[in-house]
Structure formats: structure tokens, C-alpha cells
Amino acid sequence: MGIRVENLVKSFGSVRVVDHVSFEVRPGELVALLGPSGGGKSTVLRMIAGLEAADSGEVWLDGARVDHLHARDRQVGFVFQHYALFRHMTVADNIAFGLSVRKIPLAEQKERVATLLEVMGLPGMGERMPSQLSGGQRQRVALARALAPRPKLLLLDEPFGAVDAKVREELRRWLRKLHDEVHTTSIFVTHDQEEAFAIADRVMIISQGKLEQAGSPVEILDNPATEFVARFVGDVNVLPGVSRQGHVHVGRVSVPAEDPHPDGTAVNVVVRAYDLKFWREDGAGVATVRRVMTVGDRVRVEAWLDEVEAPIFAQFPRRSSLLHGVEAGCRIAVEITQARAWAVHAPDAR
């Protein structure tokens, strides 16, 4: 089922949490709503489900406008952040709930519950109570419960937010696999970019109630539409620079500008940690190394750019030849291989 939302607006009191958000999700897609906490993503999801009424705007499911429909009539599966399992019901009764309210025959309910328990990797756990399950298991029961009535659309609100890092990794892979098997159109909300890029077909970035960019993970990584997206996505340096003759200059370091600004424009230069080169240059150089950290198979080098008085860091593979002799306190040369620049909206510039 396809989804279209148009100009959704929602305020809580005087705070506008969703500000004219429009997007479209194609049938069978798995889409992530990504952004910082409190940015309005969950509210968008809840408005699609009918758990929250929009102040204005439209929600279309499968070509039909549904904003006037109650949540129960939208045939949407919803997975809540803290599971929201019915704690007085067994796992099986939880999963069967959506079937029983639709008066599906008991035999069919049982069969469907058994199948779902199998698919979810929870065989034989039907008679347990939710309190007897681990966090990861509860999340899978919540997912099974949402999928049981065969919804046309699956919405997941921070689905893996409440489980620990290792289980989260496993659940992620498993959600992607599940989606590849059942192809239910799905939207999930997350503040974790790694999660969004790892499993979503497309990512929508939402901040302060506004949709900043929508696109495939690669598009967003390679072509951030706004400074916010560039800063939010990936491990980045933000350096003060000036635009001049098609280049941006950060002190003595310069890089060809992809988006030209008029000469003399003050810009924020956003540089990814892996779009930088450092090498040792005793007696000269533009920066001083402060710290060298080994994290797994990578090395992270933090330095101080003395000319513009800003910290800068880069990541290298552990055996990179660039690391020769680089140690805390030494002088280094810096080369920026790729960067994006956005004009600074200085407060005094009006």
C-alpha cells in the first residue's frame, strides 16, 4: 500500500512539532524517519496511524483520504517504543488480539499465532507472560502482534530503542529480512543514523518538525541537501572558512567548492572524517596533534588547526601509511579531499 502525507501540521500548545511535512512512500518500501529526538518524527508516525489528529494536512492510504478515520479503521500495524504489550495476557493472547477483535475463527487464530511465533523465533513461548521475556523477545512479540491481522502498512516507533546494542543489531538485520519476505509497506522512526542507513530503502530526515531531505541512503550521504543534514549524517568536522574564486579556504588549507558562493562569503565547511588526509610535517604544518586513538580497525586522530583556532579530526585505516610518525604533539599537514560549504547566516549580517 502506498502512503501520501501532505502538509501535515501539528502543535502541542504553543509548540509546533510538525511543520508542513509532505512525503510519499511507495508500495512495499521500507522507509526510515530519521532525526534528533523531539524533532516530530514520532508525531508524524502517530498521525499516519490515527493516534494523533493533525491540525491540518492530509493523510492518504492507498489513494484514499483517511484523516477522518479512527485508528481502528485504518488497518495499520503499529509497534510501540516500549512494546505496550498487554501485560495481563499471555504472548499468544497478545498476538491473537487483533484477530479476535475481528472475530476470526479460533482455529485460524491459533494457526496464525503458531506460524508467527515460528517466524519470530519464539516457538513454544505462547503461554509465557510478557514479564517473563527479555527485551528483544518482547519486541518481537510486539512485532508479531502488529503483523498478525496482516496490516497493509506497518509503522514502528523507535522499535529498537529500548534494547541493548547487541540485540539491536540482531533485530535490525532480522527486520530487514522479514521485510524482504513479506513486503509490507513499512515506516520506522529512529534517531540512530546507522540503523536508518543499514536497513531502509529510503530515509527521510526530519528536524524541528520539518522534512529536511528525503532520499536513498547513498543520495543523502553523498548529496546532503542542507547544512543540517550534512552535519547530522556521518562523523563530520565543521570548520570556519571563506569562499574565494571557486574554492573555500580554511586558513591555508583550500578545497574546490562544490556549491560556489560569491567571493568573500563566510562559510561553514562540513568535512567528513574520512575525507581528510594528515601527515607529519615537522617544523611546518598547519595543525598540532592532540590525541591518537585506536578504535577497532581504525585510528582516530584529533588535532588543533591553529590558524582558525578549531579542532579537527580524521579517521584512517589502522595500517595507513599516512599515520607514519603521527603522535600527540607533532605538527601535521592537512589536506581536505572533499567538503561541502554553506554560507554562514551571521546574526549581525541581517
Binding site: 496511524a49 490515527g50 493516534l51 479512527h70 485508528a71 481502528r72 479503521d73 485504518r74 488497518q75 495499520v76 500495524g77 503499529f78 510501540f80 517504543q81 516500549h82 505496550a84 504489550l85 498487554f86 501485560r87 495481563h88 495476557m89 488480539f97 487483533g98 477483535v101 475481528r102 502482534r145 502488529a146 498478525a148 491481522p149
Partner: peptide
């Protein structure tokens, strides 16, 4: 958790069913 009631609604439960099967038992 009010989300338990919301979960019931998203699965198609009426207000009455939600009251009797989700809200009251606990």
C-alpha cells in the same frame, strides 16, 4: 501505559473491547 490502549485501537478494537479486554483486567 496508555500505549496499551492505543495498541488495541490500531488492531481494530472498539472502545468497548478496549475497555473490557485491555483497560479493566489489570
Amino acid at each position: 501505559d496508555p500505549a496499551e490502549e492505543e495498541a488495541a485501537y490500531t488492531m481494530g478494537a472498539t472502545r468497548f473491547t478496549t475497555l473490557v479486554r485491555v483497560l479493566l483486567p489489570p
